[in-house]
């Protein structure tokens, strides 16, 4: 298969970027999207041009590194997958494909398609944990957890922190990401102890870092590769109101 790629190139965070067109040919329809970019990069290197920088690591949809905005959609034209799980058979031979980095002010571009997502870790640092030191724990069966809550907590905890929700949102809101973590702990007895402080601190940090407001359009849920549900946002709102002001 042959493609025309329109790729965002930016030397570093300080310089202005621009779109550059590339042709790539002889791509197997069984190749993944990132393998197609590998082919392009091999050609660029041999032509003495700089290869395109993009984030990737596990290439099986779980590490959350890959973060490409393809033809106007985070992770491209398929459902419940990350870019590394997107295959070229989802495109037509001869297609033009536009590839951009996540576009959100709290995720500044580092180079080409690589963005800085440390803002997510900064939010987690404020309360995305249970304060339990190694060795403190009672027997795992000391506190039973209703299966329904355990399952919902798992569904929320399945978030891979890729940032597609922020990239999809017109306001660059991080509500789906933050609500998933808050929900996971709110649903478990181990997390209830610090529930109030957690939601207050994480929401405050999210606002401070420049993520926008949630207006419940649901774009985040539609583009989430792990199917994190919008009900988590309802839950964080409830938790936030319950927590009251400090």
């Amino acid at each position: 298969m042959d493609f025309t790629l329109k790729i965002w190139r930016q030397k570093n965070s300080g310089e202005k970027g621009k779109f550059v067109n590339y042709k790539v040919g002889n791509v197997s329809s069984d190749s993944s999207f990132l393998e197609m970019l590998d082919v392009l990069n091999e050609e660029l290197i041999l032509k003495n041009e700089e290869p395109v920088a993009f984030d990737h690591d596990c290439r099986e949809g779980i590490c959350g590194c890959c973060s490409l905005y393809i033809n106007g959609r985070p992770h491209g034209p398929d459902e419940l997958i990350t870019v590394c799980q997107l295959h070229m058979r989802k495109f037509k031979d001869g297609d033009s494909i536009v590839i951009e980095p996540w576009r959100a002010r709290p995720f500044p571009v580092i180079k080409d398609l690589i963005v800085d997502r440390t803002a997510f870790d900064k939010i987690l640092m404020e309360g995305g944990f249970v304060s339990v030191n190694t060795g403190n724990a009672p027997d795992a069966h000391a506190v039973p957890v209703p299966k329904q809550n355990a399952d919902l907590a798992f569904d929320a905890a399945a978030c891979i922190g890729c940032g597609a929700c922020v990239a999809a949102c017109k306001n660059a809101s991080a509500m789906l990401f933050v609500s998933a973590k808050v929900s996971q702990f709110a649903l478990l007895p181990q997390g209830r102890v610090e529930a109030k402080e957690r939601v207050r601190a994480m929401v405050a940090k999210m606002d401070e870092l420049g993520f926008g407001s949630c207006s419940n359009t649901g774009a985040c849920e539609a583009e989430c590769p792990k199917g994190i549900s919008l009900t988590n946002i309802a839950r964080i709102n409830r938790e936030f109101i319950k927590a009251g002001s400090a």
Binding site: V130, T134, G135, P138, P144, A150, L188, Q190
Partner: peptide, 18 residues
């Protein structure tokens, strides 16, 4: 024990046990 205390959502049965 440690992981459960941290809030790791292991699979559970209807009685709430692992």
């Amino acid at each position: 024990d440690q992981c459960v205390a941290q809030g790791v959502p292991f699979a559970r049965d209807y009685g709430g046990y692992l």
